[in-house]
Design a binder for these strands. Structure first.
Length: 876
RNA sequence: GGUCACAUAGCUCAGCGGUAGAGCAUUGCGUUCACAUCGCAAGGGCCAUAGGUUCGAUCCCUAUUGUGACCACCA
């Protein structure tokens, strides 16, 4: 017996339990040898999953389940990401809440603490994934810092190093002074802020009455200035080029140089060049062989290279004090309020200070061309296609990737240094020593002391290897042969640079193959008001909260239905009601089947064959079309269409028409026909369950079992057999449309739903006579009478449909005026249609260009004209 | 400054070279034994603006306006 309502909590737990082994087994063996693989983007172990994760997870699971049902060996490779900086920040903050300074407890102890956190957060995430119905095998769960992944990272790094693609260089990088580490360009966000542009006098050497006015927003970096630059074509300053100025507040003399970087339009047209603290200035410095003088330490405090009174000051303090000193000594001309961009670290929120340091870089420029070509050649396809522009733009202008981070949590760089700067890159210390021994030509124990580079790799380095490192690379494993390259990557547009492009580059470099065939860029999930969800705004929705309230199926259905390519989606609790209501509808339909003895399995009816009940023929034809479209939608990755198709078929076709009609059918049919109806009702419903299963696994599995079917939908193929052979059921379609017309008329003239109505129908054949029961039920009629021709002066609501005429007999109390209006309106509708078609058909060019379409329109025109003529001939 | 999206019903959004659809909201009717987490029906749109291509444009092209995103930009 089915419960009154779908008890999703019990069902979810039960289905998860029953699915586990099958999911694991079908990752190895299924009916076909063809594989389908998705490497799930590994969530960061920084907490728990949010609604965006639930969204992409659902879409990926829909694909996994669809392919598993169709017999593919199906692997959804799960994993977790160590998320270097992000995780380190979280754990450091937790320690600080407990009054512990993470820097004081030392690297080893700190890392131990992070691993403890990882266990906790990872466990939470895994639990959430399973709860969401992800059909993944947790025995295959990987972590970017587990032993195998770490080996892959070491291997990749040493190979790139040996191939000369990884180098160490002293360069200006984005430096986070709070975390004291370099961060990549991608992690820096520029925010427009109010600032001040200060105009400062730089006196001419030898004649301090003359001066150049330099405009800057960064007066505190003045101590690092190596030159002032003017534009070579700037007449105002031409005579200054080649002379020297004195740096205010100091005795230092710097040259005036000419460089195109200087923009005469901006500020005073004279710009100070501070190579150690500005990216552009660094480049200017390179061009003019200027010295790089860093005047800040790792915490962005002024260092020993500045006058004593400014040492140790932070940027803000120093700025204040420098300005005061400039003003006091008469160097400050004016201050101007401006808007300018200030760089922030995404992760930590601190202001970035460009800083010159030794860092490790990957020469991405050498890897990019192949990656670009792979997408151009269609080896990797973006869905939606437009995202490839973003991908190309970035790769075509890509800069060396700063790989090193001065933090503790991550893969430590496998390079060992000698005291005087010789480096050995190796898989481990032993090998490094061996290399050193060979290099120096000495025994192992005579090798100079080696220290391992303290830096760790950018977290995205391990991620870039993920699709193949999870399958066993660098070993040539069976998994790698079986599952690689993978089929689809589902991810957000925000990590096309961070992740997608780098995976493609690394994969092509190391495996000579693309990592995946398709990249589905999923829409961004926003809240109901269209705001990006973020912890700071407090509008983050926990998917499990929604799942608890509405059920996982409801949530999955809602999310799937909203997966419109290329547009952000807005989700709130109320959107999940759509899904919840639909689950209720399905459940109620099942209850109806149960009460009408449709649940028992009857082999002979399941096979279909000749169907005698007209609506059976009709629903089978509908089911065939529905399934065909569902398949196409999934192949096209139109998840929204797929979900919509499920909704339409179940609600508007199966429930609204078929079930309503079969009630009448069952009541009037012979035992044989009744049995046929029950069989078809059941068969079509089961077919729906199969098709719907990828989106709503829990309710469908539960009903599958309740209907007495063996096995699980998880591996149940969509029926390819008898249901495929169906006739188009045109007559049924026609009369169903007549029932709609009757219902519409009844409402329009204001007849109550309880009013008994009689329909007289002038029809050419016996079809309606033989099918009057379900027809009457669908049209809400009391009785139907078939005649050869409508008698004259028949009082009632007249309408024509095709070549058939109908008269709905109304009761005495009907508002005649209203009835006339309705009749006029119906005539008008047809009139408009006839006029439109007539104009269209008279277009000779149209007839010539599209003869088939023209013919179709001509047929429609004839029909509408006939209807119109019939109706016009009638007097109400 | 550059690039890419988007502009359709009150709201959120589909769609398509042959003058438009859904969900929610609104209005009317209705609890006939699957379903009030409901059913039936109705109202509601110059498809941003201006040109162009075409026999025909909401759809393709160009421009404009507006919105959003990304990249660049610390004088």
């Amino acid at each position: 017996m089915l419960e009154k309502n779908f008890d999703f909590k019990t069902a979810e737990a039960d289905v998860v339990k029953r699915s586990k082994e099958i999911i694991a087994a079908t990752a190895v063996k299924n009916r076909k040898s063809q594989t389908f693989t998705i490497t799930l983007p590994p969530p960061n172990v920084t907490g728990s999953l949010h609604l965006g994760h639930a969204f992409t997870s659902t879409l990926q699971d829909v694909l996994l389940r669809y392919h598993r049902q169709h017999g593919d060996v199906t692997l959804g490779q799960p994993g977790l990401d160590h998320a270097g900086i992000a995780t380190q920040i979280i754990v450091a903050n937790q320690l600080s809440d407990q009054g512990v300074n993470w820097q004081e407890i030392g690297r080893e102890t700190f890392i131990k603490k992070v691993w403890e956190w990882k266990e906790k957060s990872g466990g939470c995430i895994v639990h959430q994934l399973i709860r969401m119905g992800m059909s993944i095998d947790l025995d295959r769960l990987r972590f970017t810092m587990d032993e195998k992944s770490s080996r892959a990272v070491l291997h990749a790094f040493t190979q790139l190093y040996n191939d000369g693609l990884i180098f160490r260089a002293k360069r200006i990088v984005n430096w986070d002074p709070a975390l004291k580490t370099a961060v990549s360009d991608l992690e820096v966000t520029n925010r427009q802020e109010k600032g001040t542009l200060w105009y400062i006098h730089y006196p001419l050497e030898g004649d301090e009455h003359q001066f150049l006015t330099v405009a800057t927003t960064r007066p505190e970096t003045l101590f690092g200035d190596q030159a002032v630059a003017v534009h070579p074509d700037d007449e105002r300053y031409r005579q200054w080029v080649g002379r020297n100025v004195r740096l205010p507040l100091t005795r230092r003399i710097i040259p005036v140089i000419a460089d195109e970087y200087s923009d005469p339009e901006k500020g005073s047209g004279v710009v100070k060049i501070t190579p150690a603290h500005d990216f552009n200035d660094f480049e200017v410095g390179q061009r003019h062989s200027l010295e790089v003088l860093s005047v800040m330490d790792e915490s962005a405090r002024l260092n020993e290279w500045v006058p004593a009174e400014f040492r140790g000051l932070s940027v803000t303090e120093a700025r204040k004090k420098v300005l005061a000193a400039l003003e006091q000594q008469g160097f400050l001309e004016k201050a101007e309020a401006i808007q300018h961009a200030v760089p922030y670290n995404d992760r930590s929120g601190s202001v970035i200070e460009p800083r010159v340091t030794d860092q490790w870089f990957l020469d991405v420029k050498k890897l990019a061309p192949r990656a670009i070509q792979a997408v151009k050649d269609g080896e990797v396809q973006f869905v939606p296609d437009a995202w490839k522009h973003t991908y190309f733009d970035w790769l075509e202008n890509v800069q060396p990737w700063c790989l090193s981070r001065q933090i503790w949590w991550g893969h430590q760089i496998p390079v060992w240094h000698t005291a005087n700067g010789k480096m050995f890159c190796a898989m481990n210390e032993d090998e490094a020593i061996a290399q050193a021994a060979e290099y120096f030509g000495v025994d192992r124990d005579r090798v100079p002391a080696l220290t391992r580079d303290p830096d760790v790799l950018d977290t995205w380095f391990s991620s870039s290897l993920w699709p193949f490192s999870t399958l066993g690379w660098p070993e040539a494993t069976a998994d790698l042969r079986t599952y690689f390259p993978t089929d689809v990557l589902v991810t957000g547009f925000d990590i096309i640079f961070f992740w997608v492009s780098r995976m493609i580059m690394m994969s092509l470099y190391f495996t000579n193959s693309v990592p995946f065939r398709k990249v589905y860029i999923n829409p961004l999930v926003r809240d109901e008001k269209g705001q990006k969800m973020s912890k700071s705004k407090g509008n983050v929705i926990d998917p499990l909260f929604l799942a608890d309230e509405y059920g996982v199926d409801a949530l999955r259905f809602t999310l799937t239905q909203m997966a419109i390519p290329g547009r952000d989606i807005r989700v709130g609790a109320s959107s999940v009601e759509i899904g919840r209501n639909f689950m209720t509808k399905i459940w109620n339909a099942a209850k109806f089947l149960e009460r009408n003895q449709c649940l028992e399995l009857r082999e002979e009816e399941k096979t279909g064959g000749e169907l005698s009940f007209a609506l059976n023929r009709w629903i089978v034809a509908q089911a065939v079309a529905f399934k065909k479209k569902a398949k196409q939608d999934l192949e096209d990755m139109r998840f929204d269409f797929f979900a919509q198709g499920l909704y339409r078929f179940m609600k508007e076709i199966y429930c609204d028409v078929y079930i309503e009609g079969m009630k009448a059918g069952l009541a009037n049919a012979s035992p044989n026909v009744a049995a046929e109806i029950r069989g078809v009702a059941r068969g079509v419903f089961l077919e729906f369950l199969k098709v719907a299963h990828p989106v709503i696994p829990f309710i469908t599995e539960t009903l599958w079992t309740q209907f007495g079917c063996s096995g699980m939908l998880l591996t149940e193929p969509w029926c390819e057999g008898p249901l495929e052979a169906a006739d188009p059921a045109e007559k049924e379609d026609f009369y169903i449309s007549v029932t709609e017309e009757v219902r519409s008329l009844r409402g329009l003239v204001g007849l109550s739903a309880t009013e008994k109505l009689h329909l007289v129908a002038a029809v050419p054949d016996s079809f309606l006579g033989e099918n009057r029961e379900w027809f009457a039920a669908l049209a809400r009629l009391d009785s139907v009478e078939c005649v050869k021709a409508l008698p004259k002066n028949l009082s009632g609501l007249y309408f024509a449909k095709g070549s058939c005429e109908f008269c709905l007999k109304y009761p005495q109390e009907l508002d005649l005026q209203k009835a006339k209006e309705v009749f006029a309106k119906k005539i008008q509708e047809r009139e408009n249609e006839v006029q439109r078609l007539k104009a269209k058909l008279s277009n000779e060019a149209y007839k010539k260009a599209k003869p088939e379409e023209w013919a179709k329109d001509a047929a429609a025109f004839e029909q509408k004209k006939e209807e119109l003529q019939r109706m016009e001939a009638v007097r109400l």
